[in-house]
Nucleic acid binder design. Structure first.
Lengths: 107, 107
DNA sequence: TTAACTCATAGCTATCGGGGTATGGATCAT
DNA sequence: ATGATCCATACCCCGATAGCTATGAGTTAA
């Protein structure tokens, strides 16, 4: 029963994970080793986080010899944008309704 | 060292909390009692979540007699939108750079 | 004043999850 | 073939937190 937003919010809630995703967005494709070098946590931890990011659809992996290259999949952020827009939409429609009411009261 | 995005993602990561915020966006101002009625958790839990939402700036409260009315503060979502745009921007600029490179190689 | 009601806080428990080390599988270099 | 490198998995540990009940503070009704 967990929708797309749930997965995204939970995945991006962790600072280490979000930092990894940000680096992939900023700097493009990176190997696990390169990511580990500046992640501040051990390699297994980086691998686990990358696995979670992949499961959320936020990254993709490409195997080349003994190293794995990860890159950001920006399209996965769409549900987050949609959710935000939806919330804004509800708020706006209620605002419009209020505006409308005030207008009618003014007549 | 926790920026605005961190607070927002962590706060919205919990399904119960996000559901409360969504209801406030959809249906407007609600009392704690009204929220508790359909929250699926106990009243103290609802109060605690509302407190966290308030601390994140996502809701505001208004005291009226013995009841407290909560409402959504949509502006608080701005850092989230900014972050998303920033990530998209990085991705786009790298894409543009690649496009540019290919263009120059083509000459 | 007393009783009922609304919400917030305190205290507790159990679970979840992020961190680590150890290790194995796979690939490359010697 | 052997050793070194890169990554993923398994396992454990511990802190964070979401849930509960009990209770108190504040407010309205009787």
């Amino acid at each position: 029963m967990s929708n797309a937003q749930d997965m995204l919010f939970r995945t991006l809630a962790d600072p280490t994970r979000r930092a990894l995703f940000e680096r992939l967005c900023r700097e493009g494709e990176k190997t696990v080793g390169a990511l580990t070098a500046r992640a501040g946590v051990s390699q297994p931890v980086v691998s686990k986080h990358l696995g979670i990011l992949k499961q959320a659809g936020l990254v993709r992996d490409r195997h080349e010899g003994r190293q794995t290259h990860y890159s950001a999949r920006l399209g996965a952020l769409a549900p987050l944008v949609d959710w935000t827009s939806e919330m804004a939409g509800f708020w706006q429609s209620r605002f419009d309704a209020l505006e409308d009411l005030l207008k009618r009261m003014d007549q």
